[in-house]
Design a protein around this nucleic acid. Sequence first.
DNA 1: CTGAAAGCGCTTACAG
DNA 2: CTGAAAGCGCTTACAG
Lengths: 347, 347
Amino acid sequence: MRKKVTLKQIAKELDVSISTVSKSLKNSVEISEETRQKVQAFAKFYNYKPNNIALSLKNRKSKTICIIIPEIIHHFFTTIISGVEHVAKENGYNVLVCLSDESFDKEVLNMEMLANGSIDGFIISLSKETQQKKDFHHIAEVINQGMPVVMFDRITNEILCDKVIIDDSLAAFNATQFLIDKGFKNIALLSTIDYVSVGKLRTKGYLKALKNNDLEVNESLILKIEDTENFEKSVEELLTNNTIDAIFAVNELFAVTAIKVASKLGKKVPEDISVIGFTDGIISKYSTPSITTVSQNGIKMGAKAAKMLIERLEMEEIENEDGEIEEHYRTEVIETELVERESTKKI
Amino acid sequence: MRKKVTLKQIAKELDVSISTVSKSLKNSVEISEETRQKVQAFAKFYNYKPNNIALSLKNRKSKTICIIIPEIIHHFFTTIISGVEHVAKENGYNVLVCLSDESFDKEVLNMEMLANGSIDGFIISLSKETQQKKDFHHIAEVINQGMPVVMFDRITNEILCDKVIIDDSLAAFNATQFLIDKGFKNIALLSTIDYVSVGKLRTKGYLKALKNNDLEVNESLILKIEDTENFEKSVEELLTNNTIDAIFAVNELFAVTAIKVASKLGKKVPEDISVIGFTDGIISKYSTPSITTVSQNGIKMGAKAAKMLIERLEMEEIENEDGEIEEHYRTEVIETELVERESTKKI
DNA sequence: CTGAAAGCGCTTACAG
DNA sequence: CTGAAAGCGCTTACAG
């Protein structure tokens, strides 16, 4: 077993000082050509690589960013990670992935744990519990300490920082309008409970579309789902007790479940009921029928979030020299797109 | 903006030495009750948290493990991350996620970058390219430097280290036997090209099952897919040109595609063709018909890998004191399970 | 051209 | 009971 070699060992071996070794490896003109050559050859032979931790301590930056997501099983968050990872690597950053499991405490713990030198900045999508409690002190705290934070998707307006979102309300409006344009009048909504910011916004878009088209809002066609594990029954009741010709679901799990339930009740999609989902994930693509859906473009969103964070990190260095503080936070809106597939009736 | 406070600042503020502050915060009996109280109160007020990087440098361990996966879009790898993350956090470790994108170079780069103090150990599943090239020097190198590595799923026997696998061959054997038991004789195989270790093993299990039951191997029923993007056509040809009553696919993407193609050709699943997939992911669960599949239990696999890595990390500390080196590498086999759903005909 | 010293933020054996 | 010193592995302004 050959342990990693350090500057100190090289210095001792070659009988020069640590400074000389360090400078030689950086090809400093301060050092004679001869010494440089000697040191470099030796270092190469022993496969010297500087210790990242020592560099982090010295430079006061870790070249690591952390992304905190509520869960990883949602395909959307997976694509976010992919987008973040690629941009990070391109810029020489590593990515630490933390799962909050929709828990406020875990979110807080993760942030507190890591905000002490381990990482340079956070990318975060709030847990459900955090959105429910409306307690964002942990995020404010971190920002206050001078660590940049970028929020995406599940954000809050109570915190000032860079954000990457989609226009949830508009996207939902468009999806609903799409159904209305096809002549559907009894459009059901499968949404989440209101404290989930995106669910609320999507509900808003749905309502607006109905209103814009002078369609009456039928409250019994609106289902707000709390427990994302066992909601099939509620969907079944919804479909049994009402006349419904189309469904707008705020995520793909709800959409695919609606299709399953409909089929169980002997209603065919899209012949009897048209369905639009949200998030262009694996389910929408491979379900039968494949699902018409609002594509959120998670890769783009993740990439954008990483870009914003890294820009701010690199910017800070300059700022610090000037003593100025730049606080122009931006909110980027990633465009969405309606991907038409088999679950909506062609006209 | 309130920057993080350090021991040095506390020491200065309270007019004591850094050592005294450090010891007080650790509640050392060396320090008087009074001083301890004073320091602790002050530290609490200023929300002192030790700098992780400094601790890492001092302790020569980062409490961070890195998982390198070929891609994140495969649901299986997502579940692995989930398993790893939870065990890691439970034990006070952070998880760095790196994507090799199936590229040998990226895999090497990631390992070289991180094997210099940034992390304490690796969990890795080989990229396709690495398996094809059979070049594992980067892994050997890292192990040789004394950094533990745990390989999972896509492994190689050329490297000695801890491993977590499933018995791919046995699982494939069982799946095929399951089809044979239902009376099917013309069983097609959708596999990957042979250099992907798991594809090869699953093919082996399929062949063995046929042989064990005195069924002839019909080479034209075996499709080895290289390009996982555009293979629908090959599947279509397979289904058109042959009499096939069942299909065993080595992943869920192949399985769901087979179902789509079959349906396009007017063959119903499971009435006309039964299909078994591999990996119990989102697709298998939500596809219509839902897919009978071999569950790999990614969460368990990831959890096990993390456990093995962390055990070795904690073990090393003891070893180093003894000067002994423990090299009993283990290979854990995670049991698989056939999850029966709608895509296979009931008898 | 080379090296000693200070410093990044912490811990701990040792001295007083 | 308190603190100075050495050290983790590195960089860099400064002295010679």
